[in-house]
Design a protein around this nucleic acid. Structure first.
Length: 271
DNA sequence: ATTGGAACCTGGTGGC
DNA sequence: TGCCACCAGGTTCCAA
């Protein structure tokens, strides 16, 4: 479910529920996520107030006075607000309980994680290598240009490399390359500066638009209010292999695997 | 130092 | 209906 736009929308939708609220209970049904859920979470969190909620790359951080919950949704994770005494869903692994509601972490594939740190979260092993956020002031055309020159991999993998730019996953990498008219196999360092400028603008544009539409909801993604995003209706290539390209109205969109991820593109438009 | 591939999981879908 | 292969919004780890 989660690339930058989905995580951003979820994060934002959680704020009115959990910000400045006191955690009253912790229930862990499944410790085995990408990393084990800390078994002292209850001791650490009950009585604590959530002071800040923020997104770093695809991570969501919940800060309290004593420390920070570091979470990541993996491929299928989600946080959902439920009534107290709700029926426990399958794959509901962790409940962070508040006075009047429960914040539930649900994740069928268990590639996500919930961890706790009492140090500066930015120094945490998982966060210290998170790349530049596309909406940060530090993300500039020149940063992108220098990064492109430093890599010999294909541009698709470059965009999905969260250690360079954080937040772009498979869906948006496909969409960004399509509107930028860049072939996904193109070697990063061979991209000319003019294309780099186009790419730069499109990265922000696509992600911004996806956020405005509430993210992309295929399969099961919903925000904390239970609302689905609608950017799936705006997708031009992802999930559209075999359809006629919307740019040239001539060639069929082709699907290939690049670094084990489905990649859809127009061989005519994306040279 | 880089990079491609396997691994971690569950659940849904389509073909036979 | 059942079984099986394959697919899925991500990331880390290991071997070449």
């Amino acid at each position: 479910m989660p690339e930058l736009p989905e995580v951003e929308v979820l994060c934002y939708s959680l704020i009115p529920f959990v910000l400045n609220k006191v955690i009253t209970r912790i229930v862990i049904y499944q410790y085995s996520l990408r990393y084990p859920v800390p078994n002292n979470l209850e001791d650490k969190l009950v009585g604590q107030t959530i002071n800040t909620i923020c997104r770093i790359g695809k991570y969501i951080l919940f800060k309290t006075q004593k420390g920070t919950i570091i979470s990541h949704l993996g491929m299928s994770g989600n946080f959902v607000i439920k009534n107290k005494n709700h029926i426990i869903a399958k794959n509901e692994h962790v409940i962070i309980g508040f006075d009047n509601f429960d914040l539930c972490y649900i994740d069928n594939r268990r590639f996500g994680l919930i961890l706790w740190t009492e140090n500066d979260p930015l120094t945490h092993k998982l966060l210290k290598n998170v790349g530049i956020d596309p909406f940060s002031d530090k993300f500039t055309v020149h940063f992108l240009w220098r990064s492109l020159l430093s890599k010999k991999t294909n541009i698709k993998q470059f965009l999905m490399n969260g250690k360079i730019i954080s937040g772009i996953g498979n869906i948006y990498a496909n969409e960004i390359l399509f509107i930028s008219k860049i072939n996904p196999y193109t070697v990063s360092r061979s991209i000319p500066f003019e294309k780099c400028q186009i790419l730069f603008n499109n990265i922000r544009q696509i992600l911004q638009l996806a956020i405005q539409y509430g993210g992309t909801s295929i399969r099961n993604y919903i925000d904390a209010h239970g609302i689905s995003g609608s950017f799936q209706n705006k997708l031009k290539v992802y999930g559209k292999a075999g359809h006629t390209c919307s740019m040239c109205n001539m060639y069929s969109l082709v699907i290939v695997k690049i670094n084990q991820r489905s990649t859809v593109y127009c061989p005519y438009c994306q040279k």
